[in-house]
Simulated scan of single mutants.
Amino acid sequence: MKTLFQSWQLWAFLSAFFAALTAIFAKIGIENINSDFATFIRTIVILGVLATLLAVTGQWQSPWTVSNRTYLFLVLSGCATGASWLCYFRALKIGDAARVAPIDKLSVVLVAIFATLFLGERLSGSNWLGVALIAIGAVFVALK
């Protein structure tokens, strides 16, 4: 059981599962509210959940132990996440969840490209075929 919880595949699947619930819950939740304000509420909830998780599991660490480089990239990541959430909620407000979510998941394609260009990661031919199929699938799902 311990090795199951150390599997990146399990956590990636759970991420996808909760992302799917996010789309459905958000689409229902933003019916009568501004999408930016909805993102604000969501962010407060996330902060509360994470603070509780850190406290309960004893994973809190002193902010002074984090390097400047780590802070820089976490701040950049946070800015990108915020921009992503704002755009995602705005898209959900005006579009169908079943069409918005696949376009949002084009991030998978962009991550593959960016990881290759900026992180030096290598993907096999079959990996690139999968990336291409994700891109094609997202486009087909988004069509009316």
Rank of each mutant, 00 (worst) to 15 (best):
D104C: 05
V100W: 00
V100K: 02
L133P: 00
I103T: 11
A132D: 02
K105D: 04
A98M: 08
S124R: 07
L129A: 06
V111C: 12
A98I: 13
A98P: 10
A112I: 01
R122F: 15
S124P: 12
L106E: 04
L119E: 10
K105W: 14
L129P: 08
A101W: 01
G125I: 09
V108N: 14
T116S: 06
G130S: 10
I113K: 09
L123P: 06
V111T: 12
L106M: 13
G130Q: 03
A112H: 05
L123C: 05
L129Q: 06
V111L: 09
V100I: 13
P102T: 05
A115S: 15
I113S: 11
I134W: 01
D96L: 13
V131L: 07
L117I: 14
V108P: 04
R99P: 01
K93S: 11
A97H: 10
S126Q: 13
I136V: 12
N127H: 14
V108Y: 13
K105N: 15
G137K: 06
I134Q: 03
D104S: 11
R122T: 14
V111E: 13
D104M: 06
V100N: 02
K93W: 08
D96W: 01
K105A: 13
F118Y: 14
V111K: 05
I113V: 14
S124D: 02
P102A: 04
E121V: 09
F118L: 08
G137N: 08
G130W: 00
A112E: 04
G120L: 04
L133C: 09
A132K: 10
I136K: 11
S107R: 13
L117T: 10
I136G: 03
G120K: 11
S107N: 05
I136C: 15
K93I: 14
G137M: 02
G130H: 02
R122D: 04
S107M: 08
E121N: 05
A101N: 13
G95I: 03
V100S: 00
V109K: 01
L129V: 12
L92H: 07
V100R: 00
V108H: 12
A132Q: 01
G130F: 02
L129W: 14
N127Q: 14
A112T: 03
L119S: 09
L133W: 01
V100M: 02
G120Y: 01
A135E: 12
F114V: 07
I136D: 07
L110Y: 11
A112R: 01
G137S: 14
